[in-house]
């Protein structure tokens, strides 16, 4: 038997002892596409579906500890969407209901797609990712785990077990641009977190580079311009500068889904809108109706 369905992490590690070249299978929503299209031919598979330690989540002090096996659907649940609104918003944009029932946070990290929808949120929350193997555990930042398109620093036999993120941190926004309203790979996405207590803005961009990009110059600039007591910007003109800095942080490419120019443009629009939403109650404007006959 070369498909292992371990019930706990120890059993998973044992499976790797028996089959060092076994491949990890989480929700299957990326893995199986590759198998179905003959791009991946696993000699053996360690399926994490039943691993108890990877399930569910818990609160530890001010931190949410998410099991790597948590699904997007679970991240959209009532409690977690209060604690991690940005992650819930991102989860809702992933694939379809079917995919959100199967796909996991750990899988999104392990796949390390530049378009992974949860990744900008995790980056903006400064998430810590705990990986484990028989040899022990280590904790990584997102940029230490994911180092290129579909490339991670996971070692042989190493499993992503937990993601630790601050609970209910400040205000959070996630915006994703796609060409239809469901089942769409991000053309660009943006996560923005404003930590009111820590007086900092964090902005992460997805699908506009080989890995998720933190727009650090934009973050620093806008953090220095916010009137933190009144939660407003002192000079509305700073929004334009912030937007420009976000755009210059992006490193997009042209591909069949969009163009580099549009992606750069779109992350700017999204970051600007996200900032606008968290800084003020964004009052809607008027809906103008133009007539084709006019």
């Amino acid at each position: 038997m070369t498909v292992f369905v371990p019930a706990c992490l120890e059993e998973a590690f044992d499976a790797f002892d028996k089959c060092p070249d076994a491949q990890l299978l989480a929700g299957g929503t990326d893995f199986m596409v590759e198998v179905n299209f003959a791009l991946r031919r696993p000699p053996a598979v360690v399926c994490l579906r039943k691993v108890e330690e990877l399930k569910g989540w818990r609160l530890e002090h001010a931190e949410v500890v998410l099991g790597a096996g948590i699904t997007y659907a679970e991240l959209m649940g009532p409690q977690l969407s209060d604690l991690l609104p940005g992650l819930a918003q991102a989860s809702r944009t992933v694939g379809s209901p079917q995919i959100r029932n199967a796909g996991t946070l750990g899988g999104n990290l392990g796949t390390a797609s530049p378009a992974g929808d949860s990744l900008p949120v995790l980056a903006a929350l400064d998430a810590r990712i705990v990986v484990a193997s028989k040899k022990g555990r280590r904790s990584l930042g997102l940029d230490e785990l994911i180092i290129g398109p579909k490339r991670t620093t996971l070692g042989p036999g190493e499993v992503i077990v937990e993601v630790r993120v601050p609970a209910a941190l400040g205000s959070q926004e996630f915006l994703k641009v796609g060409t239809r309203n469901a089942m769409v790979i991000a053309v660009a996405n943006v996560a923005l977190v404003v930590d009111w207590a820590g007086q900092s803005v964090r902005c992460a961009l997805g699908s506009v580079g080989p890995v998720v990009i933190r727009a650090r110059d934009a973050e620093e600039f806008i953090s220095s311009r916010i009137d933190w007591a009144r939660r407003t910007l002192t000079d509305e003109g700073d929004v334009a500068e912030f937007t420009a800095l976000v755009r210059s942080a992006a490193r997009p490419i042209d591909d069949h889904r969009s163009t580099a120019d549009y992606r750069r443009h779109a992350v700017g629009v999204c970051a600007q809108r996200a900032l606008g939403r968290v800084l003020a109650d964004h009052n809607g404007g008027t809906w103008e109706q133009t007539s084709w006959a006019s």
Binding site: G27, T29, V35, Q98, A102
Partner: peptide, 22 residues
């Protein structure tokens, strides 16, 4: 590849694409 739902089944009470299940 999980992009059409034609293969939808319930697995342990959850709606999933059976093409995405090993």
């Amino acid at each position: 590849q999980g992009e059409c739902g034609s293969c939808s089944v319930l697995m342990d009470g959850k709606l999933v694409c059976s093409c995405m299940v090993l």
